[in-house]
């Protein structure tokens, strides 16, 4: 009998959409039950959101003052305890899940399957290695708990028409005080979230400066897109690091990805390979980005972007 525990990711009292993507992966394993665990100082509103996700059997709400911030060292002992009775523990492959899930796995004495792209069976999964240049099939021994992180770009978010029961859960776990939250500096943006957006416009080194990036923002706003960036643009200080798309940044799968002034290093391509349609705008016709672009346009971005805006009308 397989039962999957999905760890909810949330911030500022709101459930992160990556959680519903992890539920889709859980459903693909055809388990007998999918339960979501919400660990927070005030889990009620988050649990209510999680309860709406289609396919969820029940939501376990763990309320503890220590859970006010998502510190892996504090959350892991609780998840490991809650995992008793479950055959699988899934978390989204975000920085939250990557930080927490291996700590849970080690407490359970198992290795972890990172970045699950497809579920081949309850104990068989596909995942990328070598920056996505090879895809491996991994089989987990049937007798051991499967701990996995789910590559969010590979899975659609499960719909929210459900009405699962919410149960308060109290866990008898001693929590460490050796790790403490200090603060979180969030990049402020009114634009769509990079990881959930249907359209993304990204700028690279070719944009040239922080000031010039305004032209990217303006165009993105025109088409209602989120804004991303290559590592080169982040390292040059044009934009903050949370906008980085690539192997070491965010891995995304929008319907439309427009790469502007990005040459297309392997590291970057890894982050966008699953996009529906990739558009490249670059003045260098030999840039590697054109090898994977569905639609390419060679030319000066400072001339083309305003032209695009007027052509869209």
């Amino acid at each position: 009998m397989s039962k999957i525990l999905v760890i909810a990711e949330h911030l500022d009292g709101k459930l992160n959409a990556a959680t519903a993507r992890a539920v889709s992966a859980a459903a693909a394993a055809k388990p007998d039950a999918i339960d979501i665990i919400v660990l927070s100082d005030a889990p009620e509103a988050i649990a209510a959101e999680a309860a709406k996700i289609d396919g969820v059997t029940k939501v376990l709400a763990v309320a503890r003052a220590e859970n006010a911030h998502a510190l892996a060292a504090v959350l892991a002992p609780q998840v490991a305890k809650a995992a008793a009775g479950y055959s699988h523990v899934f978390a989204p492959s975000t920085t939250f899940g990557k930080d927490l899930a291996p700590r849970v796995a080690a407490l359970l004495g198992v290795s972890q399957v990172s970045d699950v792209m497809t579920v081949e069976g309850p104990h068989s999964f596909k995942r990328p290695i070598y920056a996505g240049n090879a895809i491996v099939t991994v089989d987990v021994d049937a007798g051991s708990t499967v701990v996995a992180t789910i590559r969010t770009a590979s899975w659609p978010a499960a719909a929210s028409n459900g009405n699962a029961p919410v149960e308060a859960l109290s866990l008898d776990a001693t929590l460490p005080s050796h790790t403490r939250f200090v603060n979180l500096q969030q990049g402020k943006s009114d634009r769509p979230d990079l990881q959930g957006a249907a359209k993304v416009v990204s700028g690279g080194r070719g944009v040239g400066s922080k000031e010039n990036f305004e032209i990217i923002y303006k165009f993105a706003d025109k088409i209602g897109a989120a804004v991303g960036a290559s590592r080169a643009a982040v390292d040059a200080g044009y934009v903050p690091n949370e906008m980085q798309v690539g192997q070491t940044g965010k891995i995304i799968a929008p319907e439309l990805y427009i790469a502007v002034g990005i040459s297309g290093a392997i590291q970057h391509l890894t982050g966008i390979k699953d996009a529906g349609t990739i558009v490249a705008i670059n003045k260098d016709g030999e840039a590697p980005i054109f090898e994977i672009a569905d639609i390419g346009l060679v030319g000066d971005l400072f001339k083309i972007l305003p032209e695009l805006e007027s052509a869209i009308g």
Partner: peptide, 11 residues
């Protein structure tokens, strides 16, 4: 470096 920005912790 977390998805939401920059988080500082003390250990």
């Amino acid at each position: 470096e977390v998805d939401a920005g920059l988080e500082t912790i003390e250990a």
